[in-house]
Design a binder for these strands. Structure first.
Lengths: 134, 134, 134, 134
DNA sequence: GTGGTCTAGACCACC
DNA sequence: GTGGTCTAGACCACG
Protein backbone atom coordinates (compact mmCIF):
# COMPACT_ATOMS: atom_id res chain seq x y z
CA UNK A 1 0.00 0.00 0.00
CA UNK A 2 1.24 3.36 -1.13
CA UNK A 3 0.70 6.59 0.76
CA UNK A 4 0.65 10.01 -0.84
CA UNK A 5 0.45 12.46 1.98
CA UNK A 6 2.42 15.69 1.95
CA UNK A 7 4.56 15.54 5.04
CA UNK A 8 4.89 18.75 7.07
CA UNK A 9 8.29 20.31 7.76
CA UNK A 10 7.88 19.62 11.47
CA UNK A 11 8.50 15.90 11.10
CA UNK A 12 12.00 16.93 12.12
CA UNK A 13 12.80 17.97 15.67
CA UNK A 14 16.29 19.39 15.90
CA UNK A 15 18.26 19.84 19.10
CA UNK A 16 20.62 22.62 18.05
CA UNK A 17 22.51 22.28 21.30
CA UNK A 18 23.34 18.61 20.74
CA UNK A 19 26.80 17.56 19.64
CA UNK A 20 25.19 15.32 17.06
CA UNK A 21 25.26 17.05 13.67
CA UNK A 22 21.95 18.42 12.47
CA UNK A 23 21.96 16.40 9.28
CA UNK A 24 22.62 13.22 11.28
CA UNK A 25 19.72 13.95 13.61
CA UNK A 26 17.45 14.38 10.62
CA UNK A 27 18.61 11.12 9.06
CA UNK A 28 18.13 9.08 12.21
CA UNK A 29 14.74 10.60 12.93
CA UNK A 30 13.35 9.94 9.50
CA UNK A 31 14.70 6.41 9.43
CA UNK A 32 13.03 5.60 12.69
CA UNK A 33 9.77 7.18 11.63
CA UNK A 34 9.78 5.14 8.46
CA UNK A 35 10.58 1.95 10.34
CA UNK A 36 7.97 2.81 12.95
CA UNK A 37 5.34 3.32 10.29
CA UNK A 38 4.57 6.95 11.12
CA UNK A 39 5.93 7.82 7.68
CA UNK A 40 5.04 5.62 4.72
CA UNK A 41 6.39 4.84 1.27
CA UNK A 42 5.03 7.35 -1.23
CA UNK A 43 4.70 10.16 1.27
CA UNK A 44 6.01 13.40 -0.20
CA UNK A 45 8.83 14.96 1.79
CA UNK A 46 8.65 18.69 2.48
CA UNK A 47 10.96 20.62 0.18
CA UNK A 48 14.52 21.41 1.18
CA UNK A 49 13.73 25.11 1.41
CA UNK A 50 10.59 24.53 3.44
CA UNK A 51 12.40 22.47 6.04
CA UNK A 52 15.34 24.86 6.08
CA UNK A 53 13.21 27.88 6.93
CA UNK A 54 11.05 25.94 9.40
CA UNK A 55 14.08 24.67 11.29
CA UNK A 56 16.12 27.81 10.81
CA UNK A 57 19.03 25.96 9.27
CA UNK A 58 20.89 26.28 6.01
CA UNK A 59 19.26 24.65 2.98
CA UNK A 60 22.50 22.84 2.25
CA UNK A 61 22.31 21.11 5.59
CA UNK A 62 18.86 19.79 4.78
CA UNK A 63 19.98 18.91 1.29
CA UNK A 64 22.87 16.91 2.70
CA UNK A 65 20.51 14.90 4.86
CA UNK A 66 18.17 14.27 1.93
CA UNK A 67 21.03 13.24 -0.35
CA UNK A 68 22.40 10.76 2.14
CA UNK A 69 18.94 9.34 2.75
CA UNK A 70 18.54 8.97 -0.98
CA UNK A 71 21.93 7.29 -1.25
CA UNK A 72 20.85 4.74 1.32
CA UNK A 73 17.56 4.11 -0.44
CA UNK A 74 15.26 5.74 2.11
CA UNK A 75 14.15 8.54 -0.19
CA UNK A 76 13.65 8.72 -3.95
CA UNK A 77 14.04 11.79 -6.10
CA UNK A 78 11.26 12.77 -8.48
CA UNK A 79 12.97 15.09 -10.87
CA UNK A 80 11.83 18.64 -10.50
CA UNK A 81 9.11 17.52 -8.11
CA UNK A 82 10.80 16.96 -4.83
CA UNK A 83 11.47 13.76 -2.95
CA UNK A 84 9.27 10.94 -1.72
CA UNK A 85 9.73 8.19 0.81
CA UNK A 86 11.00 5.21 -1.15
CA UNK A 87 9.47 1.81 -1.51
CA UNK A 88 11.55 -0.64 0.50
CA UNK A 89 11.88 -4.37 0.69
CA UNK A 90 9.73 -5.03 3.70
CA UNK A 91 12.26 -7.17 5.50
CA UNK A 92 12.90 -4.48 8.06
CA UNK A 93 9.25 -3.82 8.71
CA UNK A 94 8.91 -6.91 10.83
CA UNK A 95 8.60 -6.21 14.54
CA UNK A 96 11.46 -8.56 15.37
CA UNK A 97 13.84 -6.77 13.06
CA UNK A 98 12.82 -3.42 14.49
CA UNK A 99 13.48 -4.71 17.97
CA UNK A 100 17.01 -5.57 16.92
CA UNK A 101 17.61 -1.95 16.01
CA UNK A 102 17.34 -0.93 19.64
CA UNK A 103 19.90 -3.49 20.76
CA UNK A 104 23.04 -1.32 20.41
CA UNK A 105 21.56 1.32 22.70
CA UNK A 106 20.58 -1.35 25.21
CA UNK A 107 24.06 -2.81 25.16
CA UNK A 108 25.46 0.60 25.90
CA UNK A 109 23.12 0.76 28.89
CA UNK A 110 24.29 -2.66 30.02
CA UNK A 111 27.96 -1.71 29.88
CA UNK A 112 27.37 1.48 31.80
CA UNK A 113 25.23 -0.28 34.40
CA UNK A 114 27.89 -2.85 34.99
CA UNK A 115 30.64 -0.28 35.40
CA UNK A 116 28.42 1.70 37.78
CA UNK A 117 27.74 -1.54 39.66
CA UNK A 118 24.01 -0.92 39.44
CA UNK A 119 21.41 -3.54 40.30
CA UNK A 120 19.97 -4.87 37.01
CA UNK A 121 16.55 -4.76 38.60
CA UNK A 122 16.86 -1.07 39.42
CA UNK A 123 17.92 -0.23 35.88
CA UNK A 124 15.05 -2.19 34.36
CA UNK A 125 12.56 -0.51 36.68
CA UNK A 126 13.84 2.93 35.78
CA UNK A 127 13.53 2.15 32.08
CA UNK A 128 9.96 0.91 32.55
CA UNK A 129 9.09 4.09 34.33
CA UNK A 130 10.60 6.29 31.63
CA UNK A 131 8.85 4.32 28.88
CA UNK A 132 5.48 4.78 30.58
CA UNK A 133 5.91 8.48 31.20
CA UNK A 134 7.08 9.23 27.62
CA UNK B 1 39.90 3.57 53.15
CA UNK B 2 42.80 3.95 50.77
CA UNK B 3 43.84 1.46 48.10
CA UNK B 4 47.32 1.15 46.61
CA UNK B 5 47.01 -1.24 43.75
CA UNK B 6 48.76 -0.68 40.44
CA UNK B 7 46.01 -0.62 37.87
CA UNK B 8 46.67 -2.48 34.60
CA UNK B 9 46.44 -0.69 31.21
CA UNK B 10 43.50 -2.84 30.23
CA UNK B 11 41.08 -1.05 32.50
CA UNK B 12 40.24 0.82 29.31
CA UNK B 13 38.29 -0.81 26.49
CA UNK B 14 38.42 1.35 23.39
CA UNK B 15 36.14 0.97 20.39
CA UNK B 16 38.22 2.61 17.69
CA UNK B 17 35.35 2.29 15.27
CA UNK B 18 32.94 4.27 17.44
CA UNK B 19 32.14 7.86 16.65
CA UNK B 20 32.73 8.76 20.29
CA UNK B 21 36.20 10.25 20.69
CA UNK B 22 38.76 7.97 22.26
CA UNK B 23 39.62 10.37 25.07
CA UNK B 24 35.91 10.67 25.90
CA UNK B 25 35.48 6.92 26.03
CA UNK B 26 38.39 6.70 28.46
CA UNK B 27 37.00 9.42 30.68
CA UNK B 28 33.54 7.93 30.91
CA UNK B 29 34.84 4.45 31.56
CA UNK B 30 37.13 5.45 34.37
CA UNK B 31 34.46 7.60 35.99
CA UNK B 32 32.01 4.74 36.00
CA UNK B 33 34.57 2.32 37.38
CA UNK B 34 35.37 4.70 40.20
CA UNK B 35 31.69 5.24 40.95
CA UNK B 36 31.07 1.51 40.73
CA UNK B 37 33.88 0.80 43.13
CA UNK B 38 35.98 -1.35 40.83
CA UNK B 39 38.63 1.35 41.01
CA UNK B 40 39.40 2.96 44.36
CA UNK B 41 41.01 6.11 45.71
CA UNK B 42 44.77 5.64 45.94
CA UNK B 43 44.98 3.17 43.07
CA UNK B 44 47.91 4.00 40.81
CA UNK B 45 46.98 4.66 37.22
CA UNK B 46 49.06 3.02 34.48
CA UNK B 47 51.42 5.46 32.79
CA UNK B 48 50.39 7.35 29.69
CA UNK B 49 52.96 5.48 27.66
CA UNK B 50 51.85 2.12 28.97
CA UNK B 51 48.21 2.73 28.11
CA UNK B 52 49.07 4.20 24.73
CA UNK B 53 51.03 1.17 23.59
CA UNK B 54 48.57 -1.32 25.08
CA UNK B 55 45.64 0.33 23.33
CA UNK B 56 47.47 1.35 20.19
CA UNK B 57 46.43 4.96 20.46
CA UNK B 58 48.34 8.21 20.41
CA UNK B 59 50.00 9.05 23.77
CA UNK B 60 48.63 12.57 23.43
CA UNK B 61 45.14 11.13 23.47
CA UNK B 62 45.75 9.30 26.73
CA UNK B 63 47.41 12.36 28.17
CA UNK B 64 44.40 14.48 27.26
CA UNK B 65 42.05 12.07 29.02
CA UNK B 66 44.24 12.05 32.13
CA UNK B 67 44.46 15.84 32.18
CA UNK B 68 40.73 16.27 31.92
CA UNK B 69 40.14 13.67 34.61
CA UNK B 70 42.62 15.54 36.79
CA UNK B 71 40.86 18.81 36.06
CA UNK B 72 37.59 17.31 37.27
CA UNK B 73 39.20 15.93 40.42
CA UNK B 74 38.98 12.26 39.50
CA UNK B 75 42.74 11.81 39.31
CA UNK B 76 45.58 13.42 41.24
CA UNK B 77 49.12 13.99 40.05
CA UNK B 78 51.95 12.79 42.28
CA UNK B 79 55.09 14.55 41.12
CA UNK B 80 57.42 12.19 39.32
CA UNK B 81 55.33 9.21 40.26
CA UNK B 82 52.42 9.20 37.88
CA UNK B 83 48.79 9.65 38.70
CA UNK B 84 46.54 8.09 41.29
CA UNK B 85 42.80 7.93 41.71
CA UNK B 86 41.82 10.87 43.87
CA UNK B 87 40.02 10.95 47.17
CA UNK B 88 36.46 12.17 46.62
CA UNK B 89 33.64 13.45 48.75
CA UNK B 90 31.40 10.43 48.91
CA UNK B 91 28.24 12.17 47.78
CA UNK B 92 28.11 10.31 44.50
CA UNK B 93 28.77 6.95 46.01
CA UNK B 94 25.16 6.53 47.05
CA UNK B 95 23.34 3.99 44.95
CA UNK B 96 20.52 6.41 44.12
CA UNK B 97 22.90 9.00 42.74
CA UNK B 98 24.67 6.43 40.65
CA UNK B 99 21.35 5.29 39.24
CA UNK B 100 20.70 8.81 38.00
CA UNK B 101 23.85 8.61 35.89
CA UNK B 102 22.30 5.96 33.69
CA UNK B 103 19.18 8.02 33.02
CA UNK B 104 20.40 9.82 29.86
CA UNK B 105 21.17 6.53 28.13
CA UNK B 106 17.78 5.19 29.13
CA UNK B 107 16.03 8.23 27.78
CA UNK B 108 17.78 7.74 24.48
CA UNK B 109 16.46 4.19 24.48
CA UNK B 110 12.96 5.47 25.23
CA UNK B 111 13.01 7.95 22.36
CA UNK B 112 14.26 5.38 19.89
CA UNK B 113 11.72 2.81 21.09
CA UNK B 114 8.90 5.23 20.61
CA UNK B 115 9.97 6.20 17.12
CA UNK B 116 10.41 2.53 16.21
CA UNK B 117 6.93 1.91 17.67
CA UNK B 118 8.23 -0.89 19.83
CA UNK B 119 6.26 -2.42 22.68
CA UNK B 120 7.68 -1.11 25.97
CA UNK B 121 7.38 -4.60 27.38
CA UNK B 122 9.50 -6.08 24.60
CA UNK B 123 12.21 -3.48 25.11
CA UNK B 124 12.31 -4.03 28.84
CA UNK B 125 12.52 -7.78 28.36
CA UNK B 126 15.38 -7.45 25.92
CA UNK B 127 17.27 -5.23 28.34
CA UNK B 128 16.75 -7.72 31.17
CA UNK B 129 18.11 -10.47 29.02
CA UNK B 130 21.18 -8.47 28.02
CA UNK B 131 21.88 -7.48 31.60
CA UNK B 132 21.76 -11.11 32.71
CA UNK B 133 23.98 -12.42 29.96
CA UNK B 134 26.62 -9.72 30.33
CA UNK C 1 12.07 9.99 -50.76
CA UNK C 2 9.48 11.16 -48.32
CA UNK C 3 7.72 9.03 -45.73
CA UNK C 4 4.35 9.78 -44.19
CA UNK C 5 3.88 7.28 -41.43
CA UNK C 6 2.40 8.24 -38.08
CA UNK C 7 5.05 7.34 -35.55
CA UNK C 8 3.84 5.66 -32.34
CA UNK C 9 4.59 7.17 -28.92
CA UNK C 10 6.73 4.18 -28.02
CA UNK C 11 9.59 5.22 -30.25
CA UNK C 12 10.94 6.63 -27.00
CA UNK C 13 12.31 4.38 -24.29
CA UNK C 14 12.85 6.36 -21.10
CA UNK C 15 14.92 5.19 -18.14
CA UNK C 16 13.45 7.31 -15.36
CA UNK C 17 16.09 6.03 -13.00
CA UNK C 18 18.98 7.23 -15.14
CA UNK C 19 20.85 10.38 -14.25
CA UNK C 20 20.54 11.53 -17.84
CA UNK C 21 17.70 14.02 -18.17
CA UNK C 22 14.55 12.70 -19.77
CA UNK C 23 14.47 15.34 -22.49
CA UNK C 24 18.09 14.52 -23.35
CA UNK C 25 17.34 10.83 -23.62
CA UNK C 26 14.50 11.61 -26.00
CA UNK C 27 16.65 13.85 -28.17
CA UNK C 28 19.48 11.37 -28.45
CA UNK C 29 17.17 8.49 -29.21
CA UNK C 30 15.31 10.25 -31.96
CA UNK C 31 18.52 11.53 -33.52
CA UNK C 32 19.95 8.05 -33.64
CA UNK C 33 16.76 6.59 -35.08
CA UNK C 34 16.74 9.21 -37.79
CA UNK C 35 20.41 8.60 -38.57
CA UNK C 36 19.87 4.85 -38.47
CA UNK C 37 16.98 5.14 -40.89
CA UNK C 38 14.31 3.66 -38.62
CA UNK C 39 12.64 7.05 -38.69
CA UNK C 40 12.42 8.93 -41.99
CA UNK C 41 11.89 12.48 -43.19
CA UNK C 42 8.19 13.21 -43.39
CA UNK C 43 7.20 10.83 -40.62
CA UNK C 44 4.66 12.45 -38.30
CA UNK C 45 5.74 12.65 -34.69
CA UNK C 46 3.23 11.63 -32.01
CA UNK C 47 1.76 14.62 -30.20
CA UNK C 48 3.31 15.97 -27.05
CA UNK C 49 0.28 14.91 -25.04
CA UNK C 50 0.32 11.41 -26.49
CA UNK C 51 3.96 10.85 -25.66
CA UNK C 52 3.60 12.38 -22.22
CA UNK C 53 0.80 10.07 -21.15
CA UNK C 54 2.38 7.00 -22.77
CA UNK C 55 5.68 7.62 -20.98
CA UNK C 56 4.25 9.03 -17.79
CA UNK C 57 6.33 12.15 -17.97
CA UNK C 58 5.52 15.83 -17.80
CA UNK C 59 4.21 17.25 -21.11
CA UNK C 60 6.59 20.17 -20.66
CA UNK C 61 9.47 17.74 -20.78
CA UNK C 62 8.32 16.30 -24.09
CA UNK C 63 7.68 19.76 -25.41
CA UNK C 64 11.20 20.82 -24.47
CA UNK C 65 12.68 17.87 -26.33
CA UNK C 66 10.60 18.63 -29.43
CA UNK C 67 11.56 22.30 -29.34
CA UNK C 68 15.26 21.56 -29.10
CA UNK C 69 15.01 19.00 -31.88
CA UNK C 70 13.24 21.62 -33.96
CA UNK C 71 15.93 24.16 -33.14
CA UNK C 72 18.58 21.78 -34.42
CA UNK C 73 16.64 21.06 -37.58
CA UNK C 74 15.69 17.48 -36.80
CA UNK C 75 11.99 18.21 -36.61
CA UNK C 76 9.80 20.69 -38.44
CA UNK C 77 6.62 22.28 -37.19
CA UNK C 78 3.54 22.13 -39.44
CA UNK C 79 1.13 24.72 -38.16
CA UNK C 80 -1.80 23.13 -36.41
CA UNK C 81 -0.77 19.68 -37.49
CA UNK C 82 1.99 18.69 -35.15
CA UNK C 83 5.58 18.03 -36.00
CA UNK C 84 7.24 15.94 -38.65
CA UNK C 85 10.73 14.63 -39.11
CA UNK C 86 12.58 17.22 -41.19
CA UNK C 87 14.31 16.87 -44.49
CA UNK C 88 18.06 16.91 -43.95
CA UNK C 89 21.12 17.35 -46.09
CA UNK C 90 22.34 13.79 -46.38
CA UNK C 91 25.87 14.44 -45.24
CA UNK C 92 25.40 12.49 -42.02
CA UNK C 93 23.71 9.59 -43.65
CA UNK C 94 26.99 8.06 -44.74
CA UNK C 95 27.92 5.01 -42.74
CA UNK C 96 31.36 6.39 -41.89
CA UNK C 97 29.89 9.53 -40.40
CA UNK C 98 27.41 7.54 -38.37
CA UNK C 99 30.21 5.40 -37.06
CA UNK C 100 31.91 8.49 -35.73
CA UNK C 101 28.85 9.20 -33.57
CA UNK C 102 29.52 6.12 -31.49
CA UNK C 103 33.12 7.11 -30.79
CA UNK C 104 32.53 9.08 -27.57
CA UNK C 105 30.80 6.14 -25.93
CA UNK C 106 33.60 3.87 -27.02
CA UNK C 107 36.20 6.17 -25.59
CA UNK C 108 34.39 6.11 -22.29
CA UNK C 109 34.56 2.32 -22.42
CA UNK C 110 38.27 2.49 -23.18
CA UNK C 111 39.01 4.77 -20.24
CA UNK C 112 37.05 2.61 -17.83
CA UNK C 113 38.66 -0.56 -19.14
CA UNK C 114 42.09 0.84 -18.63
CA UNK C 115 41.39 1.97 -15.09
CA UNK C 116 39.84 -1.40 -14.31
CA UNK C 117 42.95 -3.01 -15.82
CA UNK C 118 40.85 -5.20 -18.06
CA UNK C 119 42.24 -7.16 -20.97
CA UNK C 120 41.26 -5.35 -24.22
CA UNK C 121 40.46 -8.71 -25.73
CA UNK C 122 38.00 -9.56 -22.97
CA UNK C 123 36.22 -6.25 -23.37
CA UNK C 124 35.94 -6.62 -27.11
CA UNK C 125 34.58 -10.13 -26.75
CA UNK C 126 31.98 -9.02 -24.26
CA UNK C 127 30.86 -6.25 -26.58
CA UNK C 128 30.57 -8.67 -29.50
CA UNK C 129 28.45 -10.95 -27.42
CA UNK C 130 26.14 -8.14 -26.29
CA UNK C 131 25.76 -6.86 -29.86
CA UNK C 132 24.75 -10.31 -31.07
CA UNK C 133 22.26 -10.96 -28.31
CA UNK C 134 20.58 -7.54 -28.57
CA UNK D 1 48.85 -7.71 1.70
CA UNK D 2 48.74 -4.19 2.97
CA UNK D 3 50.27 -1.21 1.23
CA UNK D 4 51.37 1.94 2.96
CA UNK D 5 52.32 4.36 0.26
CA UNK D 6 51.44 8.02 0.44
CA UNK D 7 49.37 8.67 -2.63
CA UNK D 8 50.05 11.91 -4.52
CA UNK D 9 47.29 14.47 -5.13
CA UNK D 10 47.50 13.86 -8.85
CA UNK D 11 45.78 10.50 -8.66
CA UNK D 12 42.76 12.58 -9.60
CA UNK D 13 42.36 13.99 -13.10
CA UNK D 14 39.45 16.40 -13.25
CA UNK D 15 37.72 17.58 -16.41
CA UNK D 16 36.32 20.89 -15.22
CA UNK D 17 34.43 21.28 -18.46
CA UNK D 18 32.52 18.04 -18.06
CA UNK D 19 28.90 18.03 -16.99
CA UNK D 20 29.72 15.30 -14.51
CA UNK D 21 30.17 16.81 -11.06
CA UNK D 22 33.74 17.07 -9.82
CA UNK D 23 33.09 15.01 -6.71
CA UNK D 24 31.52 12.26 -8.85
CA UNK D 25 34.51 12.19 -11.16
CA UNK D 26 36.77 11.78 -8.17
CA UNK D 27 34.68 8.95 -6.75
CA UNK D 28 34.52 7.01 -9.99
CA UNK D 29 38.23 7.44 -10.66
CA UNK D 30 39.33 6.27 -7.27
CA UNK D 31 36.95 3.30 -7.33
CA UNK D 32 38.34 2.16 -10.65
CA UNK D 33 41.91 2.64 -9.54
CA UNK D 34 41.25 0.55 -6.46
CA UNK D 35 39.53 -2.17 -8.46
CA UNK D 36 42.29 -2.03 -11.06
CA UNK D 37 44.94 -2.45 -8.39
CA UNK D 38 46.79 0.79 -9.08
CA UNK D 39 45.74 1.88 -5.60
CA UNK D 40 45.87 -0.61 -2.75
CA UNK D 41 44.32 -1.10 0.68
CA UNK D 42 46.36 0.76 3.28
CA UNK D 43 47.55 3.46 0.90
CA UNK D 44 47.29 6.88 2.52
CA UNK D 45 45.10 9.30 0.61
CA UNK D 46 46.42 12.82 0.06
CA UNK D 47 44.78 15.25 2.47
CA UNK D 48 41.65 17.15 1.52
CA UNK D 49 43.55 20.43 1.47
CA UNK D 50 46.37 19.01 -0.60
CA UNK D 51 44.02 17.72 -3.27
CA UNK D 52 41.96 20.88 -3.21
CA UNK D 53 44.92 23.14 -3.92
CA UNK D 54 46.41 20.75 -6.48
CA UNK D 55 43.14 20.55 -8.43
CA UNK D 56 42.16 24.13 -7.79
CA UNK D 57 38.80 23.21 -6.33
CA UNK D 58 37.09 23.93 -3.05
CA UNK D 59 38.13 21.75 -0.10
CA UNK D 60 34.48 20.99 0.58
CA UNK D 61 34.16 19.43 -2.85
CA UNK D 62 37.03 17.10 -2.11
CA UNK D 63 35.68 16.46 1.34
CA UNK D 64 32.33 15.48 -0.13
CA UNK D 65 33.98 12.94 -2.39
CA UNK D 66 35.99 11.50 0.49
CA UNK D 67 32.94 11.30 2.75
CA UNK D 68 30.88 9.47 0.17
CA UNK D 69 33.75 7.09 -0.52
CA UNK D 70 34.00 6.46 3.19
CA UNK D 71 30.26 5.87 3.40
CA UNK D 72 30.53 3.21 0.73
CA UNK D 73 33.45 1.54 2.42
CA UNK D 74 36.15 2.51 -0.05
CA UNK D 75 38.05 4.73 2.36
CA UNK D 76 38.55 4.57 6.11
CA UNK D 77 39.10 7.51 8.41
CA UNK D 78 42.02 7.48 10.82
CA UNK D 79 41.09 10.11 13.31
CA UNK D 80 43.29 13.12 13.09
CA UNK D 81 45.54 11.33 10.66
CA UNK D 82 43.81 11.47 7.33
CA UNK D 83 42.20 8.74 5.31
CA UNK D 84 43.44 5.44 3.96
CA UNK D 85 42.16 3.08 1.31
CA UNK D 86 40.03 0.55 3.14
CA UNK D 87 40.43 -3.16 3.34
CA UNK D 88 37.72 -4.78 1.24
CA UNK D 89 36.25 -8.21 0.93
CA UNK D 90 38.14 -9.42 -2.08
CA UNK D 91 35.07 -10.55 -3.97
CA UNK D 92 35.32 -7.66 -6.37
CA UNK D 93 39.00 -8.11 -7.02
CA UNK D 94 38.41 -11.10 -9.26
CA UNK D 95 38.90 -10.37 -12.92
CA UNK D 96 35.44 -11.68 -13.81
CA UNK D 97 33.73 -9.34 -11.39
CA UNK D 98 35.73 -6.42 -12.72
CA UNK D 99 34.67 -7.31 -16.23
CA UNK D 100 31.04 -7.08 -15.16
CA UNK D 101 31.60 -3.47 -14.14
CA UNK D 102 32.15 -2.47 -17.73
CA UNK D 103 28.92 -4.06 -18.93
CA UNK D 104 26.61 -1.04 -18.45
CA UNK D 105 28.82 1.11 -20.65
CA UNK D 106 28.92 -1.62 -23.25
CA UNK D 107 25.16 -1.96 -23.22
CA UNK D 108 24.87 1.74 -23.82
CA UNK D 109 27.14 1.29 -26.84
CA UNK D 110 24.97 -1.57 -28.06
CA UNK D 111 21.78 0.46 -27.84
CA UNK D 112 23.32 3.38 -29.67
CA UNK D 113 24.80 1.13 -32.33
CA UNK D 114 21.47 -0.46 -32.97
CA UNK D 115 19.66 2.84 -33.27
CA UNK D 116 22.37 4.12 -35.59
CA UNK D 117 22.01 0.88 -37.57
CA UNK D 118 25.75 0.33 -37.42
CA UNK D 119 27.41 -2.93 -38.38
CA UNK D 120 28.38 -4.76 -35.16
CA UNK D 121 31.67 -5.66 -36.80
CA UNK D 122 32.50 -2.01 -37.50
CA UNK D 123 31.78 -1.02 -33.91
CA UNK D 124 33.89 -3.81 -32.51
CA UNK D 125 36.77 -2.89 -34.80
CA UNK D 126 36.61 0.74 -33.79
CA UNK D 127 36.68 -0.22 -30.12
CA UNK D 128 39.69 -2.48 -30.67
CA UNK D 129 41.51 0.32 -32.37
CA UNK D 130 40.76 2.79 -29.58
CA UNK D 131 41.83 0.29 -26.92
CA UNK D 132 45.14 -0.25 -28.64
CA UNK D 133 45.90 3.41 -29.13
CA UNK D 134 45.02 4.37 -25.53
C1' DG E 1 48.33 18.74 11.23
C1' DT E 2 43.74 16.02 10.02
C1' DG E 3 38.59 15.88 8.50
C1' DG E 4 33.67 17.60 9.76
C1' DT E 5 30.07 20.90 10.04
C1' DC E 6 27.58 24.90 9.03
C1' DT E 7 26.57 29.33 6.82
C1' DA E 8 25.68 32.54 3.04
C1' DG E 9 25.10 33.16 -1.43
C1' DA E 10 25.48 32.11 -6.30
C1' DC E 11 24.34 29.48 -10.39
C1' DC E 12 22.51 25.56 -12.88
C1' DA E 13 19.48 21.80 -14.64
C1' DC E 14 15.17 19.91 -14.61
C1' DC E 15 10.07 19.83 -14.69
C1' DG F 1 8.71 25.43 -8.37
C1' DT F 2 12.26 21.37 -7.32
C1' DG F 3 17.10 19.54 -5.87
C1' DG F 4 22.32 19.75 -7.08
C1' DT F 5 26.75 21.80 -7.23
C1' DC F 6 30.29 24.78 -6.07
C1' DT F 7 32.65 28.60 -3.68
C1' DA F 8 34.42 31.22 0.24
C1' DG F 9 35.16 31.43 4.77
C1' DA F 10 34.47 30.34 9.58
C1' DC F 11 34.71 27.33 13.53
C1' DC F 12 35.26 22.92 15.83
C1' DA F 13 36.96 18.31 17.39
C1' DC F 14 40.52 15.16 17.21
C1' DG F 15 45.36 13.49 17.61
Amino acid sequence: MMSNRDLPPDIFLIATGSSEPIYRQMIEQLRRQILGGQVKAGDAMPSVREVATALGVNPMTVSKAYSLLEGDGWLARRRGMGMVVAERESQFEQAESRLELIRPSLEKVALESQQLKLQPKAVVQLLSQILKSG
